[in-house]
């Protein structure tokens, strides 16, 4: 599908507003919505698995090989803090976005 944006002439828009590239919302990054930033502390993580299904943004990747989570995908994380709240081990802390600590 050709790239569509606000400058695309009507002739090049898809007919009826259909989209033929399922899942292309991945091209739309929502990370800049974040005002709070989750920080992953791998040393404290016990890989219990409570955090990754709760993420509304699918921003906690889980590796296929060893079923372990890795660091956040900040391209999409909106900083809601749901993951931090469910972590029983203090392995996810929240800090203000853009502020070094």
């Amino acid at each position: 599908m050709t790239k569509i944006d606000k400058s695309t002439p009507m002739e090049n828009l898809t007919t009826g507003g259909d989209i033929y590239e399922a899942g292309n919302a991945r091209d739309f990054k929502t990370g800049d919505w974040r005002s709070m930033r989750p920080v992953f502390h791998g040393d404290k993580c016990k890989q219990c698995g409570l955090c990754f299904p709760v993420c509304p943004e699918n921003a906690i990747p889980v590796k296929k090989e060893d079923l372990k989570r890795t660091d956040f995908n900040y391209d999409y994380c909106k900083g809601c803090g749901v993951c931090s709240k469910v972590c029983p081990f203090g392995a996810i802390t929240m800090k203000e976005e853009g502020v070094d600590q």
Binding site: D5, L13, I19, Y20, A22
Partner: peptide
């Protein structure tokens, strides 16, 4: 094999053009 999405939220930047189509 080629899933599609039908019936978007079509905002100010696009509805005019889709109507003109």
């Amino acid at each position: 094999q080629n899933p599609i999405a039908v019936g978007p939220l079509d905002l100010q930047a696009f509805l005019f053009e889709h109507k003109a189509q």
